[in-house]
Design a protein around this nucleic acid. Structure first.
Lengths: 341, 341
DNA sequence: TGATAGCATGTTACCGTTCACATATGCAAA
DNA sequence: TTTGCATATGTGAACGGTAACATGCTATCA
């Protein structure tokens, strides 16, 4: 059970060489006579030696671990970014340690525990409220923001985000292209950068093609399906009585809210998409299985995670790497929740 | 940028004490005179000292990190377990490092890199195919299996799983209670333990109440919505022509497949749930937003993750902790995809 | 044939903690 | 005063690697 660790010196003794020679063998550094190498390798196998990662970290001053902080690990968007990030990290020879920070205080403590303690070499932050938190991150550590319009003001951070404005623009233009002119928008929390960019894209598309939308057609949600459900009453009245001057299409700033809206419309007996076209953003996994199947802007979350980690590791390995801000484009996935007006 | 680390000896020199006294202060171990403690604490603040986690790991032989391996980090089920696990781990003062293993070879290598290298102190495995992989895990490390019927044959592992058989039993009984007698089942891959247990529960409920189901009413899926969609044709014919002797209700062994089946039925113009009742397992986040809202067995994935990590950490801190196998019950969530026959 | 270079390998220190043990100090009891 | 025993603090050695430098040996060349 509590076996004692086989060390590099045990291997050395067993192979009749010095521990340094063993080190050279396991690291493929320096020249070692083939015969010696063989002896050492045999000893390694015999003793079942595995280098201690901790001792290596100690000696090299590198842990081979990068960290990721997100509000939670469950949400599809976060989980997908993390999944892509983890894969890319491992390909680069790193591990990814993910942790959640429920609030600002927890965030600061987490950063200290992860970076200050030298446990991890860099940090990736996935958080819509990152702007408030960023200042607490000491600027001497490699840092990258991922997802959610995180163009933070942090002086040295890299970032990889979706092109929110352009995605919103495309989504709105899709509705315009179908002949809709009265288009409403369900937004995320207006304090979030991501929401602001998407709203800007929406307003811009509409202003250019028709006219700026009336204020009451911008309904604030909180990204949840419930809030999308609730938006229905705000847009169409509690009874769902459809008046003349009401929107014929809605751009929901994410799929969850879009799905909530669809549910509300169906609960009021509306035929969809005849009576209302709805488009979302994200392309969540079961988007095609709602009624009607959801038209949406596909976000490549895995790519965001991948690119973010690549940038992060580049920063870790070369502290002077130039600051970069990448944008990953979104792509229209046309299903059946939108139709010609 | 590349600042030099402030060490415990720097603090000691600054406070005019020995490094050991500083160690005592930061660990609250041994008695230190209040005045001395104050001096040390002042020096810590002045110099901005933070203990090196790596050096501590080295000296203590403990890293404070436990690992988790899952097929991916995206799937709602895995992500939820991991989320719960991460939270519980942090509460216990540990970090959780998650990694994915696409295949058996990758799994074995991962285990070596995580446990053999001493990087992590214990391992939690979330994997439906765990039985095949378990033998590769050396038995001297704390190990726990979580989710997916993972009652592996590993001699020393703990496990936390859903009570699959009983959940299936309950789901089937719900349909029986509504008057259905012709009930089909869409299973997961039959090689998985989890599938086997759920199928057993299904067959048992049916055998007790009515009679064992005919073989053609057990359709094998792969957990995906697509496979649920495909199951429709197998059960009801490619044209969806409903004959007399066909099932009136389907128990899908997870929500994804249930949702796929619902979609297929709707695509064939079936009115739901009048023409077909469907129940799933999992209670995925948007289950209430499908058409019709999905009746399902709620799984508390977070609890599974939490309990699994608790067991794991117990095993880490006390190697002689008795082996435990927990089962977390599922709970019926009645929505509108099932109705009286 | 001796100086020299280069290869193979060994020696020693170091990374930043904790641990086990040693030592100094103060105070009470003999 | 001496002994003894806390209490407070210091010293040196781990932990298991890597890095820098030292050494021994062989081959090459003047």
């Amino acid at each position: 059970m509590s076996r004692v660790r086989v060390t590099i010196r045990d291997v050395a003794a067993h192979a009749g060489v010095s521990h340094q020679t063993v080190s050279r063998v396991i690291n493929d550094s320096g020249r070692v006579r083939p015969q010696t190498r063989q002896q050492v390798e045999a000893a390694i196998v015999t003793l079942g030696y595995q280098p201690s990662a901790v001792a290596r970290s100690m000696a090299r001053g590198r842990t081979g671990i990068v960290a990721c902080i997100a509000p939670n690990l469950t949400d599809y968007t976060f989980a997908s970014i993390i999944n892509g990030a983890q894969t890319a990290a491992r390909e680069a020879g790193y591990f990814l340690l993910s942790a959640t920070a429920p609030d600002a205080a927890g965030f600061t403590e987490l950063v200290a525990q992860l970076l200050g303690s030298g446990r991890t070499e860099g940090l990736m932050v996935i958080d819509p409220y990152v702007d408030e938190l960023a200042r607490d991150i000491p600027s001497e550590f490699p840092l990258v923001f991922a997802g959610g319009g995180a163009q933070s003001g942090h002086p040295l951070a890299h970032s990889v985000v979706m092109d929110d404005e352009s995605a919103a623009l495309q989504a709105t233009r899709h509705l315009l292209g179908l002949g809709h002119e009265r288009i409403a928008c369900i937004t995320g929390p207006t304090t979030e950068k991501c929401t602001q960019m998407r709203t800007r894209g929406f307003v811009r598309a509409l202003s250019t093609a028709v006219s700026p939308p009336p204020a009451e057609w911008l309904v604030e949600g909180d990204w949840s399906a419930e809030s999308g459900y609730g938006a229905f009453a705000q847009l169409f009245g509690a009874d769902g009585e459809k008046r003349e001057d009401v929107p014929t299409a809605v751009f929901a700033q994410n799929d969850q809210m879009a799905v909530g809206l669809l549910r509300a419309a169906r609960d009021h007996g509306w035929e969809l998409p005849q009576k209302l076209s709805v488009i979302g953003i994200d392309n969540i996994p079961l988007a095609a299985y709602f009624a009607p199947p959801l038209t949406t802007m596909h976000q490549d979350f895995a790519a965001i995670g991948r690119e973010a980690v690549k940038l992060l590791i580049e920063a870790v390995e070369n502290l002077d790497a130039p600051q970069q801000h990448l944008q990953v484009p979104a792509q229209l996935i046309e299903r059946r929740s939108t139709m010609r007006y």
